[in-house]
Amino acid sequence: MADVARLAGVSHQTVSRVVNGHPHIRPATRTRVEDAIAALGYRPNGVARALAVRRSGTIGVVSTDTALHGPATVQRSVEEAAARAGYVATTVTIREATTDELGRALDRLVRATVEGIVLVAGSDAALTLARGADFPVPLVVAQGDLTATGSAVGVDQLQGARAAARHLVELGHTRIAHVSGPLGWPEARARREGWLGELAAAGLDAGPEIEGDWTPASGYAAGLALAPADVTAVFVANDHMAVGLVRALVEAGRDVPRNVSVVGFDDIPEAAYLLPPLTTVRQDFATVGRRAIEVLHGMLTGVPDPGPRLTTPVLVPRSSTAAPSTAVRVAS
Rank of each mutant, 00 (worst) to 15 (best):
V262M: 13
S319F: 00
F285G: 01
P324G: 12
S320C: 12
P304Q: 07
T326N: 15
A323T: 04
T311S: 13
T301M: 08
V328A: 15
P306I: 14
G302A: 14
I268Y: 00
I293K: 03
V281W: 05
V288Q: 01
E294M: 02
A322M: 15
F265V: 10
E270G: 06
V260R: 12
V295D: 02
D284H: 02
R318W: 11
V295R: 07
I268L: 06
V295N: 00
R291I: 06
T312A: 05
G264E: 03
V295A: 04
F285P: 01
V288M: 03
T326K: 09
A271I: 00
T326F: 14
T312S: 12
P306D: 11
V316Q: 01
P277N: 03
R309T: 07
L274Y: 00
D267V: 11
L275E: 00
P277L: 02
S261K: 06
G302C: 08
P317H: 07
L315T: 13
D267R: 10
P308A: 14
A323C: 10
A327N: 15
P324S: 11
L274S: 04
F285H: 10
S261M: 06
L275H: 13
A323E: 09
A322K: 13
T287N: 04
D305N: 15
P306E: 14
L274E: 02
A286P: 06
G264T: 06
P277Q: 02
V263W: 05
P269L: 01
R318V: 11
P269E: 06
S261G: 09
P306V: 12
E270I: 14
P317G: 01
F285E: 00
T279S: 14
H297L: 02
V303A: 12
S320A: 07
V263G: 06
V281G: 11
P324E: 12
